[in-house]
Structure formats: structure tokens, C-alpha cells
Design a binder for these strands. Structure first.
Lengths: 144, 144
DNA sequence: GTATCTGCAAAACATTTGCAATTCT
DNA sequence: AGAATTGCAAATGTTTTGCAGATAC
């Protein structure tokens, strides 16, 4: 459970506790993900942090995200092969991508899904579930 | 339901029935997918068909697969951002990728999965589910 | 004979790598 | 000072695009 708050002191501690030196760039990138639960792409993160960190490079964003994944504090979402997204919520949950507005929503499943005899003797490390379609907002705005 | 057999005459008819002119390359590419349910990448398809069609180019493989997807007779699987795979089975089902041997297995779910109040007012067009881990064969061979 | 299909070469992108400069302790 | 981090430029790898030649009906 993520019980940390979003002030930079706590993010620093959080990173330290996961074996990550809290550099300025790392703090800002993690805080951006934590405060904006929009499953951003590298480009979105980069563009949003540029005003604050004018010297920032995409390489650093890539390096940092890969480090976070390796230390298991974020997860990678592959919905389209052309855009990798990142999520601070590392628990197993689904996603919904709206084909109209492009927004990615979290999806939490009610029933204890996913029983398959196919997997009985397999070791499952990761479960990924996503949907594509049209979100409520877009359905309403299209109808108008 | 795919009830066609794998001789080239029937594949030709099948393609025609879906508004696709059955060229030699298209027949061979569809037949390869139909006869080898291994969820191959473009590269795998290309390498396997090259001996049979020495003039084949990857562009044609890409063009053909995109046409098949557009006509809805195959589906795209995005499990890793670095490798797109293709499946002749267009029904909704899951996949399992072994992190050891790289093989992708089909996963058919028993219970009528996937109820989420989050999606109540959303229009769902596609459902994608996949797992990563270690397959039975690899578990056994690692133990030895 | 005209439409379509194929396949080469080049372009377009996202991501990674090598390495030199910078920063932190 | 020494070790880690950052960021530029170049490399890599996949997919798409433009276009000319080949093929099919």
C-alpha cells in the first residue's frame, strides 16, 4: 500500500527505503507520477517537467523509469506498441484506454477473476489486463 | 468459429469471403498463421516463409498483417513493446508468455470473468489479458 | 489495359548505449 | 577526490511511407 504523502521529504524517504538515491530529477519524476495518476508516457513526463527542470533530458527520464521498474516501485503498461506508459500503482489491476480521447483509466475488478486450468502448473509472475473502447465522457459528448 | 481446413483452396475462399484478394503472399502468410499457432512476430513469419517465397519482403508481411487486422481475421498481441505478435484466433482469450523460453501460450478462462463497476457506462470494444512467468516445461527443465 | 499488389530504399519513431561533463558527499 | 548521475549525440530496432516495377483480371 502506498501510504506516503506527496511532499518531497516523504518521497525522498520512500526512494531511499527502496534503495534509490533521491536526486532532484528522480524526486520530480516520482512526484509527477504520484500526483498525476494519468499513466503518462515518457514524452508526457518529459514535457511536463521541462519548465521546472530546463536541463532535463529524455535519457534521464528513461533511465529513471527503468530504475524505478527494477526497484519495483512503478510498473510499465504496454497497451499500444507505440507508446509505453507508467503507473505508480504496482498492484495488479486493469486499465481502460478510450479510443476517442486517449485517456487511460484504472479498472478494479470485483470478483476474484482469472481461473484457468491452462495455468495450473505454470508460475505466474505478472498479470496484465486492459480494455479498449469509448469512455463515458466521450459517449456523452458524441451524442450531443 | 474458424471451421476452415488448411488447404489453400479453402484459405483462398476464406480470404475472398472477407473482402481480401487471395494473392500468393497473402495465402502463404495466412496459412502460416493458421497452421502454426505460435503467435509469431513479423520476423518469425518472414524468416519461415523466405525459403518458400525467396522474393518476399518484410514490407509485404507488414502490409498483409495490417490488412488482415483491418478485415478482422487476425488480432494483434502487444505483450512486449519490442515485439508485436499476431494471432489467427480473434475470439477473446488470454495469453501466457514464458520469461524463460519466450513461448506464448493460449489461456482460456473458465469463469465468466471480468466484472467491474468502473466500466458500467463505458463501451468496451476489446479485452486483452496476458500473464508472464515460467511455463511448466521450463520449471521442470530448470529443476533438473 | 488498368487496377492492384509487391518490394526496395528511405523515413519516422521510440528506446538504448557510449561517453564526457556535472554533481554530490 | 571518488563515485554516481546526468544529458548529449549516435546507434539500434521496429514499423511506415513513397514510389517504381511486376502481376493479375
Amino acid at each position: 500500500m502506498n501510504s506516503i504523502t506527496n511532499n518531497s521529504h516523504d518521497v525522498g524517504l520512500f526512494l531511499k527505503n527502496h534503495g534509490i538515491k533521491p536526486s532532484y530529477q528522480r524526486l520530480k519524476i516520482y512526484s509527477f507520477l504520484f500526483e498525476n495518476r494519468i499513466h503518462p508516457t515518457v514524452d508526457t513526463i518529459y514535457k511536463n517537467l521541462c519548465p521546472e527542470i530546463p536541463t532535463l533530458s529524455k535519457t534521464t527520464v528513461y533511465n529513471t523509469l527503468n530504475l524505478f521498474i527494477q526497484k519495483n516501485i512503478i510498473q510499465k503498461l504496454v497497451i499500444e506498441e507505440t507508446e509505453t506508459r507508467y503507473d505508480v500503482n504496482t498492484s495488479t489491476h486493469g486499465h481502460f484506454k478510450c479510443e476517442n480521447c486517449g485517456k487511460v483509466y484504472d479498472v478494479f475488478l470485483e470478483n476474484n477473476l482469472l481461473h484457468s486450468s491452462n495455468l495450473e502448473n505454470f508460475k505466474v509472475n505478472e498479470t496484465h489486463l486492459y480494455f479498449k473502447g469509448v469512455c463515458e465522457k466521450c459517449i456523452k459528448s458524441i451524442k450531443k
